[in-house]
Design a protein around this nucleic acid. Sequence first.
DNA 1: TCGATGATTGAG
DNA 2: TCAATCATCGAA
Length: 207
Amino acid sequence: MRCISSEFYARPTVGVARDLLGNILVRLLRCGSSKIKRMSGIIVETEAYGFTNDPASHAYRGLTFRNSAMFGDVGRAYIYFTYGSQFCVNISARSSNVKAGAVLIRALQPLEGIEEMKAFRKTDDILALTSGPGKLSQALNINQSLNGYDVTDPNSELHVEYGFSPALIIETGRIGISRGTDKIWRFIIADKVRQGYLNKYASRKKI
DNA sequence: TCGATGATTGAG
DNA sequence: TCAATCATCGAA
């Protein structure tokens, strides 16, 4: 259970997106004075978002209050609210010569705290718990209050630990966007597609 | 200010 | 296929 350090995120965003597959997103839920509930999942789907080279990126038009986490230290959570009801989780990552960048966590395979996830999601369907960026945020009880959290700190309520190296990775264009669709910046663990850990919307798209 | 728009989801 | 739903952003 070792936390991934900040050097990992200080590399080109697209490579970080690919290399995050197979690692573990961990959510520590503080319930009461001393009790800590641990929830986690294997990262099975990611997308990279860049800067001025990427019209689909929130950072494309420059620094704003919302996207400031994409411009700050690498290895920080960038969490935003969208479509009126959903939160999306990103991790800031970029090489030192680039001003902004982040990796969107699109899907997990539930690992620990599955009963809690069922309660937060209001469903018992394992494959529906974290098979989408909005769903995984709901399952892990993640909201904007976690924006900017250091995911390289093992004591952080949201952090990433080492997992395994996937045998086969699928690369596709990003989905749910209208611009920048030519960039092959979406990454998926091949086995997890077959096992059903990606959402239906994602499966409908070309893989 | 104000209107348009989403890195989505669940229901029909 | 389509509505829900609201923070954010750029134009006015």
